[in-house]
Amino acid sequence: MSLLDVNNLSCEFDTDEGRVRAIDEVSFSIEAGETLGIVGESGCGKSVTALSIMRLLPQPMGKIVKGSVTLNGQDLTSLNHQTMETIRGKQIGMVFQEPMTALNPVHTIGKQLLEGILLHETQNISSATALAMEILEKVGIPSPDIRMGEFPHQLSGGMRQRVVIAMALACKPTLLIADEPTTALDVTVQAQILDLLEELQNDLGMAVILITHDLGVIAEACDNVIVMYAGRVAETGSVYDIFDHSKHPYTKGLLASIPRLDSIPKTVLPVIEGIVPGLQDLPSGCRFSDRCTFSRPFCTSQTPSLAATFNVSTTAQSHRVACLRWQEL
C-alpha cells in the first residue's frame, strides 16, 4: 500500500462564469521517502491538487466532487473538520510559495512555530520551545534563540522560506507538500533550499510532493513526475521516462521550449503555439488538441485516458501517457 493514494480526484469551483472543473480525474500515488514532482504551467491545477489533498480548497467556492485521497489507508475526503485538523500539520506538512504571505507579519517567528507544536506534539511550553529551536537549527538558521523573537520582516527571503519549512517539519510529517517552494527565490538561494529539502527528507524519511513550473528543479530533485495540463494528467512516469522518453506532445514541447545553458545563443526556440485555455472554454476531447501540432480530427472528439507505455524504468510508478496518438509519435 502506498503512503498516499489519490484516485480519480475531481474538484469544481463556483465562479461568476458558472461552475468550472479545476482538476479532472487526477490519480497518482506516492510511496514513503519518495519525491514526486508535479509540473505544469499556471492554471493547470497543480496547486488545486495540493490544496484538495490538504482539504484547504477556498470555501465555499471549491469542492471535491469526485474521487478519494487515501493517506495511510484513511480516506481524507470523508473526514470532518476536527479530524482533519489532527492530520494537517501533523501527518501532512505544507510549504507555500511566497514566504512573506505564508508567515503572519505581526507575530514572532517563535510564536508561529510553537503554534503547531503545541497543538500536535506537547502542551509543555519549555519542551515545545526546545523542539522549535532544534528544528530551526536543523533548517540552517543561525542563533535560533534570537530568531525566535524576531518578526518575519527582519529575515531575508531565503531565511523566511527556511522558517516556513521549519513550521512544516516541526511535527515530523510523513508527507510534505511543497508548492513552488523556491519560485520567489534567487537561484543561489533556491539551490540552498533544494539541498536542505533533500537532506531533511533523508533524515526524516518523509515523502515529498514538489510542485513547480521549473523543469530544471524537477530534474534535479524528483524521483517521479506528473505533467499536468488544463486540469488533467498529461503524462506521468519516472524522471528519466519524462525527460528522456517523453511521449506526450505537451511534455515534448515544454522540454524543447526552455532555453538551455548549452544551447546555441540567438537561435529560434521551438514554441508551443497559443496559450493555456481558460477553464470556462476548454477544448473538447484532448484539452491540448488546439495547441498540438500532431492533432487529428478525432483528438477533439475523443478524450484520451492515461495509457501505460512499455515500462522503461524500474521504478514502481509506470510510465503512462494521455494521448491518442502516442504510439505513432
Binding site: V187, Q190, L194, G216, V217, Y240, F243, D244
Partner: peptide, 12 residues
Amino acid sequence: SLISAIPVPDPK
C-alpha cells in the same frame, strides 16, 4: 556559483 546553481533540466 551562479552557473552551478542553475538547475539543469536533465536528470542524468
